[in-house]
């Protein structure tokens, strides 16, 4: 039984790592109703910039701040040269734009910093420790705490601050937001910057785990089922979705794998997401379309 809980807890903690990536998607989806395909590239760009600065002998915090500035510059460029041209276009147009952006950002990161694999050491001990007879990863617990703080800060931001309320307004109705004098350009810059920051945090944690390399941009694929289960519009949904995915894929691997062969981890989340789409297409916490009759 204690083995079961060990697998479960390990899975839950690993799931939080998926949530970190998913939160970046939710932010931009909430503010513009667009699925930002480039989020994975932003994670990669952030991690690669950070690690390259670190390797050039810059201290941890200075590198963090410089990377953050780079993410702001990236957000500014995207807003100025892509989003502003596409105001009030259908969401699919914006989605295609982010698809293109994704490749541009990846290419940019590559031409700036090269294509080799970098190791990243955040100075967190990844040795498992024993808790009530279970072995848990310190690194995962650290990541879970980071995610918890992020969610708390973001939910206060969206519900209590003026910028947050304005962002939700823009997500609901761009034309009406323009009509009441909300400056879309400013808000998009803010939300892409915040998404860049979340991308940086996710990039650091994932980079420390997998090494900073181009496959890092593929973690978005693991964030997809998280988004479908949690709902595209809910930050707490992406946490819950991440927990469900993390726990279920590990449990399936360990307990079902023995019967139907290993490697379940790789496809189980997608199957789970598909089941959710059948039962609850907006996800657990997703906003339903409000239609009055």
């Amino acid at each position: 039984m204690s083995f079961f809980f060990e697998v479960l807890l390990g899975g839950l903690l690993a799931g939080v790592m998926y949530s970190l990536v998913a939160i970046g998607f939710v932010l931009i989806y909430k503010a513009s109703g667009v699925f930002n395909f480039a989020q994975g590239s932003m994670v990669l760009f952030a991690a690669l910039t950070f690690v390259s600065l670190l390797e050039r002998g810059i201290s941890f915090w200075l590198a963090f701040v410089l990377t953050l500035l780079a993410m702001v510059a990236l957000a500014w460029t995207i807003e100025r040269w892509v989003l502003r041209k596409l105001v009030n276009r259908p969401p699919i147009t914006l989605f295609m734009a982010t698809l293109g952006l994704s490749y541009i950002i990846e290419g940019l990161a590559q031409s700036l910093w090269g294509a080799q694999v970098h190791g990243l050491d955040l100075g967190i001990n990844d040795e498992p420790f024993e808790f009530q007879g279970m072995l848990l990863s310190q690194f995962d617990i650290f990541a879970a705490c980071v995610a918890g703080v992020l969610v708390l800060v973001l939910s206060v931001f969206f519900n209590k601050t003026r910028t947050g309320i304005a962002l939700r307004a823009v997500a609901d109705d761009q034309l009406a937001a323009l009509a009441v004098g909300i400056k879309l350009e400013k808000l998009w810059l803010i939300v892409w910057t915040v998404a860049g920051f979340v991308g940086l945090v996710a990039g650091l944690l994932w980079g420390a785990r997998l090494g900073v390399q181009f496959s890092l941009s593929l973690v978005v694929l693991k964030a997809l089922p998280v988004l479908i289960i949690g709902g595209f519009t809910s930050i707490s949904g992406s946490i819950v979705g991440g927990l469900i995915i993390g726990a279920s894929e590990k449990l399936a691997e360990v307990f079902l794998g023995a019967y139907i062969g290993g490697g379940i981890e790789n496809w189980f989340p997608y199957m789970l997401a598909m089941l959710f789409l059948l039962v609850r297409p907006t996800g657990i916490f997703g906003e339903r379309q409000i239609e009055r009759v």
Binding site: I165, A169, D173, L175, A177
Partner: peptide, 11 residues
């Protein structure tokens, strides 16, 4: 004030 009201439905 826009035609068709355009309230922010989820606010």
């Amino acid at each position: 004030v826009l035609e068709g009201r355009h309230c922010f439905a989820h606010l």
